[in-house]
Amino acid sequence: MNLKVNIAGVELSNPIITASGTFGFGREYGEMYSLDELGAICVKGLTLAPRAGNPPPRITETYGGILNSVGLQNPGVDMFIKNEIPELKKYTCKIIANIAGNTIEDYCEMAERLSGSGVDMLEMNISCPNVKEGGVAFGTNAKTILHITQEVKKHAKIPVIVKLSPNVTDITEMAKAAEAGGADALSLINTLLGMAIDIKTRRPILANITGGLSGPAVKPVAVRMVYQVAQCTKLPIIGMGGITNGDDAVEFMLAGSNAVAVGTANFMNPYACVSIKKGIVDYMNQYHIKDVNDLVGQVVIK
């Protein structure tokens, strides 16, 4: 049985990737199981300078999902390179650095610093809904996506994944713009902008008022978007949005994902990535599938 997948020339031992922001830099989960189990780790979103993040509360549960607004708290790209990459290099899993900037120059500068640092791929976070400047502002306009992707590609010496926002009218326009800009792969979806109010106090539950919705509640939206994007681009796709078990992962692959990312599910089950991988293997055994890549895009439309 083959579980290896190839994303833009980078070979992953299996299609399981951790979704940025849910897994830190891997240290905490690395205490619970070997990170060699993973195809890749996509690390917490990095910015050029360290960021304190948003005030608490930063998270709340909703029906079948969670809202979060961390606001890109991170130690900055240089501290990541110095302190975290050596730790991550102890494992065989690939490293994806998620980068977010206030300006196009920020993204380019981070791409420069991270190329040759030991990171295998970059994920351009142009879809974070929780910061005031940059972030999603870049990811909701096709012209801006084209331009920022072209610029970052000039500076990156490693493959560039563009992470797409679902908070757009037509995600295929954004996907095509990223492809035209030279993106090597796409990941989707980032969180859906949401809000929850405490009716006793009449205040928003999150201090930031709004937050990003993730978890099982968003899965049908994410599967639909992966399917649509797979129809209109040739780029490899990392699909994510509410994947909680092996069946969910298979569904995303059938829709057109070459690999899948697991986020919210890690919170309930710290071993979620391991059990999802096992769930994919169980499905492959049941349906006599020898190569996981044979699932990609195999949804049957009559």
């Binding site: 304190a52 005030p55 608490p56 998270i59 709340t60 708290q73």
Partner: peptide, 26 residues
């Protein structure tokens, strides 16, 4: 106490403000 995500220190959602201030205040 605070609303919490992973519980093990990875997700940075259950923050509290510290006296250190600046970038490391949470």
């Amino acid at each position: 106490e605070q609303r919490m995500g992973c519980g093990i220190g990875a997700c940075l959602t259950c923050s509290c403000e510290t006296t250190s201030g600046g970038t490391w205040k949470y």
